Computed example of a mutant assay.
Amino acid sequence: MGGPRDPAERCSCRNTDCLERPLRRLFEGLATGVAACPWPFVLLPLLLSGGLGAGFFFLPQRQANDIEGQFTPTWGPAKAERDVVRRYFPTDDSARFSAPRLPTEGAYAALIAVASDGTSVLGPAAWPEVLRLDEAVRDPSYERLCARSNGSCASPNPLLPRRGDEPRPAPQTLRFPVHDGVFLGAALGGVDTRDGQVLSARALKLVYYLREDGPESEHSRQSLQGFQRNISSKLSELHLASIQVTYFTSLSRQQEFEGNTKSVIPLFSITYFLTITFAIVSCLR
């Protein structure tokens, strides 16, 4: 049996080493074990870290990068309300497409044409280039998958002619923001008006909707991916001098989100490796 505890080891107001002394003895014993047999303490953390880190190889198959699923509640009321809209206001992208009836953003490619040198996009120099741009986007893939209304592809802009022989819209004949019952606030930008009449407009927006209902949704997605790959070369071939064009699609935000994920994981892995290495090297001193 052990003798009575030394009064110097008891906790009191005068003695505050009652916790430090046993911890010091514990770590002295651990240090003795590490010094006597260091290799298990060196190899085991490395093997354990390598084994756990190997799970990153399966990340592409198991990752959840859907931007809606990541940033919205799983059972949020907005999703239930959207289902109600889909039930009572169904869409038919193949015959009766209507952008205001879409419960989501839809599948689309959008281009914004901005007139150069402060001119108007409705001017005689810029308008023919807008028509050439529209013709370049309407390739066979788009004509096959476009959202249709009244037997033809939905117009990307209400000011674009439905027939090739229609004249250029004269700015003084247009009313803003509503012209002949059509809202132009989303079609024109940088508008200069006088008494409600359009004098000039710096920018014009073109939105090309594709069908996303039924089995054609995947084909529309592939078509948008092809649009993103080829649009830069098409713009270069057009040699546009009077307008500048920017573009984005309904996939742009999702692709940007996925790109951020791919750029963060390597940095996280490097930080994790350096932290473990520093901890192991510190124990060897």
Rank of each mutant, 00 (worst) to 15 (best):
179 H>G: 12
194 R>W: 07
231 I>E: 00
245 V>F: 06
252 S>R: 02
174 L>G: 11
256 E>P: 00
251 L>Y: 01
173 T>D: 15
199 L>S: 04
206 L>F: 09
223 S>T: 03
189 G>L: 05
243 I>S: 10
225 Q>R: 12
258 E>C: 01
228 Q>G: 07
182 V>W: 07
178 V>N: 13
206 L>W: 08
255 Q>W: 04
252 S>G: 02
197 Q>T: 13
206 L>V: 06
185 G>Y: 10
178 V>M: 14
209 Y>D: 11
247 Y>E: 02
250 S>L: 02
245 V>W: 03
261 T>P: 00
224 L>R: 05
229 R>K: 08
203 A>D: 12
170 A>E: 14
227 F>S: 06
222 Q>C: 00
227 F>N: 05
191 V>S: 12
248 F>S: 09
244 Q>E: 14
190 G>T: 02
243 I>V: 15
192 D>E: 15
201 A>P: 07
217 S>L: 06
259 G>L: 03
209 Y>P: 05
184 L>V: 05
202 R>A: 14
187 A>N: 04
250 S>I: 01
208 Y>P: 01
184 L>C: 12
231 I>N: 00
229 R>M: 02
257 F>V: 02
252 S>L: 01
219 H>S: 15
180 D>E: 15
228 Q>S: 09
199 L>N: 07
200 S>V: 02
260 N>G: 09
246 T>Y: 01
232 S>Q: 11
232 S>V: 06
213 D>Q: 15
202 R>T: 10
195 D>Y: 09
211 R>L: 03
219 H>T: 02
258 E>N: 08
185 G>I: 01
214 G>N: 12
239 H>K: 14
244 Q>P: 01
225 Q>P: 00
173 T>W: 04
266 P>Y: 06
224 L>K: 07
263 S>A: 15
173 T>P: 00
235 L>S: 09
265 I>S: 03
255 Q>V: 00
174 L>W: 11
196 G>R: 10
242 S>C: 11
253 R>K: 05
171 P>E: 09
240 L>Y: 08
242 S>Y: 13
260 N>M: 05
259 G>Q: 10
248 F>I: 00
179 H>I: 08
231 I>M: 07
191 V>H: 13
239 H>M: 07
256 E>H: 08
183 F>G: 06
189 G>R: 09
234 K>M: 07
263 S>T: 09
259 G>D: 13
185 G>Q: 09
205 K>F: 04
248 F>V: 01
195 D>N: 14
183 F>S: 15
177 P>Q: 12
259 G>V: 00
205 K>Y: 10
187 A>P: 06
245 V>N: 05
234 K>L: 07
